[in-house]
């Protein structure tokens, strides 16, 4: 079992529905977020290309945040999901400094918080909140170890990229391009 998210940048319109769904589902405090939209424009007018994508924790295989955590609060659970145990987190910020994606933030209550791939929803057999609300259905979620899953098939048939692969983190959010 290895959870992965695949996001089709050609279908994303940057509506931020995923951001709002996540904030609502996970009670993210005002002014913070666990996922966000980036808009990249490349080229010189009139020959420009725009790419929109939804970003979040990449649930890396070689997660620097887990490596740097002094208490073991950051850990990897079954399915490769990186989680933070709030009661073990001392708020030292080492994981925030170590994340190439800036995917973590200090919750106003003190501990460090981040995307969980909606672990609590997965346990009930539901999709992550962001995936379930996407109006253009540009986000896919599934098991990468299963060759017949939707995500495996998409990565088999389409061109894709990951973010900052040179950081050596082996991220598990893939972007179709």
């Amino acid at each position: 079992m290895r959870y992965a998210m695949v996001i089709d940048t050609l279908k994303c319109v940057g509506c931020s529905d995923c951001v709002v769904a996540c904030q609502t589902e996970n009670n993210v405090p005002l002014g913070y977020c666990r996922d966000w939209i980036t808009e990249t424009v490349d080229g010189t007018y009139p020959n420009i290309v725009m790419e929109l994508k939804s970003e979040r924790c990449n649930h890396c295989d070689n997660a620097p945040c887990v490596r740097c955590c002094p208490t073991g609060a950051s850990h990897i659970v079954d399915g490769g999901i990186v989680l933070v145990t709030a009661d073990e987190c001392i708020g030292c910020g080492a994981c925030i400094e170590s994340c190439p994606y800036d995917a973590r933030y200090q919750h106003p209550d003190g501990y460090v918080d981040k995307c969980t791939f909606c672990h609590h929803r997965l346990e009930k057999g539901q999709l992550p909140a962001c995936v379930s609300v996407c109006p253009t259905k540009c986000m896919y979620f599934g098991d990468l170890d299963n060759p017949n899953s939707e995500v495996s098939q998409l990565l088999k048939n389409r061109k894709y990229k990951t973010l900052a692969p040179e950081a050596g983190t082996n991220p598990h959010v893939f972007y179709l391009i």
Partner: peptide
């Protein structure tokens, strides 16, 4: 003082994580 979850500082001493420099330091 720089920790944001200060009351849980003792968690540093419930484990030793060989890969974490901060654990070594603590």
């Amino acid at each position: 003082y720089d920790l944001t979850h200060k009351l849980y500082t003792w968690q540093l001493y419930t484990t030793f994580r060989i890969e974490s420099p901060m654990s070594w330091g603590a």
